[in-house]
Design a protein around this nucleic acid. Sequence first.
DNA 1: GTAACGCTGTTAGTATTTTCACGAAGACCA
DNA 2: TGGTCTTCGTGAAAATACTAACAGCGTTAC
Lengths: 218, 218
Amino acid sequence: MPSEKTVERLSLYRYLLYGILADGERNVFSHELAGMAAVSPAQVRQDMMVLGYSGSPNQGYEVGKLIASITEFLDDAHGRNMALVGVGNLGRAILSNFAGQRSRLQIVAAFDVDWQIVNRMVHGCWCYPLDKLSGVMRDQDITVGIICVPPAAAQEVADALCEGGVRGILNFAPYRLQVPDHVYVSNLNITVALEKVAYFAHHSPVRLETPSREEAKV
Amino acid sequence: MPSEKTVERLSLYRYLLYGILADGERNVFSHELAGMAAVSPAQVRQDMMVLGYSGSPNQGYEVGKLIASITEFLDDAHGRNMALVGVGNLGRAILSNFAGQRSRLQIVAAFDVDWQIVNRMVHGCWCYPLDKLSGVMRDQDITVGIICVPPAAAQEVADALCEGGVRGILNFAPYRLQVPDHVYVSNLNITVALEKVAYFAHHSPVRLETPSREEAKV
DNA sequence: GTAACGCTGTTAGTATTTTCACGAAGACCA
DNA sequence: TGGTCTTCGTGAAAATACTAACAGCGTTAC
C-alpha cells in the first residue's frame, strides 16, 4: 500500500524513463533517475521496492523492464477510461495533452452544457451534452472523472459522476466536493499553487524541489 | 518558517474565508474551517499559530481579521507582479481565472511566440512577443513566472525568466528546470495528478482528502 | 583467480508533519 | 456571582516521510 507521494513519483519516473528510452539508453542508475526527478537516489531505490522489479548491481535498471514494471503496478491490465467535464480552456488544454498519448489511461468522452461545443470532436474526443453523462459513463465503462467546470457547477457534476459509477475524481474547481466514501477525490487548485510560489519566491527558504546539478531530460 | 503545506493550507483557508464572508458570517470556528478544507480542527489551529492573530474562545475567529492576517502573512505589502508565458489553452485558462481577481497578486503580462496571439489583449492581459520578456519584466517589476509552454521550450523560457530577474516559477511543463539556486521552482504535472487519481480510484486505500460530513462552501 | 570497485536492496535512524490532550478563558444561564 | 459549556493555544505524542548506512553481488582489472 504505497503512499500518495510514492505513486506520484512512480508516475514521474515512468515519464522520465520514456524520455531516456527515446534517447537510446537501455540502462539507468538510481542516481541518474534521482537527478532528473529532483529526489535523492535513496528515495528512488526505496520507491522501487514496491514494484516487484529489481535492478542489477553495476548495471542499474533496465529501462524497458522498469517501465513495464511501473505500468503493471500503476495501471490496470485492461486500461482505464476517463471522462472530462467542462470543455473550456482548461478542459481543452487537458484534452490536447492527452490526445494521441500512449497508454492504458485515456479520456474517452468529454461533456459540456454549451450547445456550441457539444456534439462534435474536440482534440480527438467526442463532446456530449452534459445530461448524457451517466448514460455514456456506463456504456463506455468510465471510472475516472475530471472536473474542469466553474465552482458553482462542480458539486452538480460530481453528483452526476457518482450517479454514473465513478471511482475517482480529479477536481480543478476550488470547491470541496461531497461524495460517497468509496469515491477518491484529489483537488488541484491552481490559485493555491500560485500563491505558494509567490510566497516562497520572496521568503526564499531552503530550496526543496530542484535539481541544480545533474542534467534533466525531457 | 512555515512548511510548503502550511502555506498551501493558509491560501486555501483565505479562499474559503472569502466565501464565508460573502455569506454574511462574521465568525468561524476551527472545526468549521476544517470541514471545508478537509483537514482536522487541530491542523487549522496549528496553522493559525504562524500568524500573529488569535481567535477568541467561544467566538472562534473573526473572519475579516483572519483574512487580513493571512493576507499580511502571505502577500507582500506592495503586491507581486507575475508573468505568464505560453498563451495556449492552459495559459488562457489561468489568465481568465485571474482576470478581475482581487488581490496583491496579479498577472500583469503574458508572452507567446505566435504572431497571431501577440500584441493584443487576452482575458484582460496584454500579450507581448516572447523576445520582449526580460525587458518587460524589469519595467513592470515582475518577480514570478508561470510556464505554460511545451516541454521542449520550457528551459529556454526559464532561462529568459531568470535573465529578467525572476524569483519564483510555477512550471506546468513536464520538464525539470535548471535554474540558479535563489530561484524557487514548483512543478505541477497534470498527467501525474491524473495517474495518481486513476491509481487510487481502483486501489481505493484509506481515504485521505475529503470531507464526507460538514457542509462545504463555495 | 582474486581483489577492488560500484551499485542495488534493505534496514535502521532521523526529521518532519499531524494528531492528541489538557489548561485557560470568554459567554451564557440561573 | 458561580457554574457550566464550548472553544482556543500549545506542548507532547504519534504517525509519516525521508535519509543514511551497510551487506551482498556482479563486473572489471590485473
